[in-house]
Design a protein around this nucleic acid. Sequence first.
DNA 1: AATGAATGAGTGTTCATTCAT
DNA 2: AATGAATGAACACTCATTCAT
Lengths: 213, 213, 213, 213
Amino acid sequence: MLSQDKRNLLIQRRREEILDAAKLVFARNGYRRTLTDTIIAELGVGKGTLYKYFRNKKTLFLAVFYRGMQQLREVIRVKIEPITDPRQKIINGVRTYFEFFDNDKELIEIIMQVRSEFKDEYRQNFLEMYNDYIGQIQQNLKNGIALGQFREVDIEKTADAISDILQGTLQSYYILKANEKLADKTQAVTALLLKGVLKISNEASAQSRELQI
Amino acid sequence: MLSQDKRNLLIQRRREEILDAAKLVFARNGYRRTLTDTIIAELGVGKGTLYKYFRNKKTLFLAVFYRGMQQLREVIRVKIEPITDPRQKIINGVRTYFEFFDNDKELIEIIMQVRSEFKDEYRQNFLEMYNDYIGQIQQNLKNGIALGQFREVDIEKTADAISDILQGTLQSYYILKANEKLADKTQAVTALLLKGVLKISNEASAQSRELQI
Amino acid sequence: MLSQDKRNLLIQRRREEILDAAKLVFARNGYRRTLTDTIIAELGVGKGTLYKYFRNKKTLFLAVFYRGMQQLREVIRVKIEPITDPRQKIINGVRTYFEFFDNDKELIEIIMQVRSEFKDEYRQNFLEMYNDYIGQIQQNLKNGIALGQFREVDIEKTADAISDILQGTLQSYYILKANEKLADKTQAVTALLLKGVLKISNEASAQSRELQI
Amino acid sequence: MLSQDKRNLLIQRRREEILDAAKLVFARNGYRRTLTDTIIAELGVGKGTLYKYFRNKKTLFLAVFYRGMQQLREVIRVKIEPITDPRQKIINGVRTYFEFFDNDKELIEIIMQVRSEFKDEYRQNFLEMYNDYIGQIQQNLKNGIALGQFREVDIEKTADAISDILQGTLQSYYILKANEKLADKTQAVTALLLKGVLKISNEASAQSRELQI
DNA sequence: AATGAATGAGTGTTCATTCAT
DNA sequence: AATGAATGAACACTCATTCAT
């Protein structure tokens, strides 16, 4: 009889193995086209084992997603939260976000699948991330404005827009399966976020009053 | 007996009716959860009729999608292509894009579904739109730079980033089902695209060289 | 296009065919051991057809049961209800009940299966039959007593006991698969119900007061 | 190290504990719906232990049943066999039978389950009980007739009918889950068995010849 | 041309039983 | 002797598509 500790360790390890195999197969085939048979074949375990660890296919799939989101949160917490300079925070935030997904491309597929297959679950998770993520962007904008670095933008809407450009970049990367790395887009995205396309902001700002927005 | 023309007209009308009903049901339930039975119930025709007009469920779904994309292209062609001033083109482009989807929210759902269910078909369509859409953004950036309005940005990557922010905005709108209109985001998105968040671009630009990007 | 009437007729006929095949297979193998595949093989139709007519296996099984109970009720209504003489009603009632099941032995199996697999559904049906069945036995006892034919028995409990002897006979017949007919038991059962085993009731009755009951 | 005797005693005790837990769970949920997991949870032992004592679920279930039948036989042997007066034997037999099941209601559920799930095993057991049970009823009828207490009934069929009324009473009690005790039915059942419903047997007997049986 | 009854391939999930520790 | 993690055979049910009328 194994000690309880050893047993728990093995169970935990097995759980992770299942999540790894499932992530691989779900990312390759999509949620619907993935057969539980394919996952267990990948794993080399019996079907009962799968169902011992996860109640059903949906639960397994969402567990893969939640684990990924947890890992993203952790990276944000470690690499981005400590940064205090608002400009630097945007720059590093964008790069870190992109690098995270460069290192875990399967997770992009998983996220896209969750969005369309389990919109409710995705929405809830998305809202939960507001604190760690959009909330932080908002705070960063506030800090930048207070320090005189940033223009007095509409904080909420601008934070949304910044979040959206990241999501959108991920999305188009997912669709086009570009061979380049996401992180290669850091420069262009960051420059756009920080400086926009206009040559001289102030002047542009003056002129834009004449423009019909 | 109807004349051939009249018959064709009727057939065309019936085809549109089917697409309308299918769009409604697909948007409401998603592609997978939509039953052909639900579509014909919405239509009030027999199942054979559906299959007379569309080879299968997938074809019908993609036809709904293609029709929507065609309509978007048409709007872009009429409302955006004629604009020559680069700044104005960005501003109006964003607004027009958002207003188009405010007027056809079901299409947002359809697009999101196509993306995850039929990635290949979506990719192909996406690439086809490059000429009308990303290609136009690139041309606009070139024009703006030539006219001295825009900074000398990396045209391809910046165009991608602009496209991504629109896609991302659509995406987050889709997820959060915000009650506000998409068009309400025009100001914030446009300001970000044009001016970025930095207070004084040139100065910021100078400083950013010190920043680690 | 078939007329609506003709269509309904065909649907009704098909429904009955399915019930017949299902009764055969359920009676032969029992509810649990019956595969839907076996039923459709017996029928020679596709599986979808089965599920078009009956929502699931349980519904189909209970439909077989309910149809049988309906037929029993009908036989009781036609052959037993009209009888007015209390003694004759008991005699004919027992015989009719036994003959009904001699003519539909599969139904005995179905009833036994329902009892143990779907006790709740059986109980409800049993209670519903009280009006047509136990209620009638009670009324018959009352009439017999009023006419001076019957002793002044406890009507409710005696009616239950009469019902129980019929159920029990069915039950033991089911278990022992006797080759003889149920109806052959009519004489013995009826004699017991009417006269008991004692030689002279009155005397016995007197004596039985001394007995410890 | 335990002595062989002590070990055997422990094994025997453990076996009884398993049977007790299994009876409880089988009676509560029925054979099919009972999971071996539920039984071991009730017991607080591992699954391997269960299978050490009983080859499989069916064997365990039938062991519960056989133990109950054995106990019934023992009660009959002790309480009924010694009775010599035929009338008293019927009266006490019915009461003893009912009281036995009042004291072990779970066994009623077990018996009903065995009947429909393992008809063959039940039939065999039923036949084995003929000697102790139906055989005894037949002998009692013979004795009653010889003593002049009982009418000259068809011994086999009447014995069957008497057995059937007991089975049927058990059955309807099982279905209706009456709150009253089975033993409360003794009077009505016994009266029916002994005296029937007719007021004056002899006269009735005469008249019944005119009746169509 | 329109209908809708019939089809049947495809798949997630359960749970009794085994056996390595 | 006892454990409980692992097993995998078994099976009900769905729904896009067809085709006879």
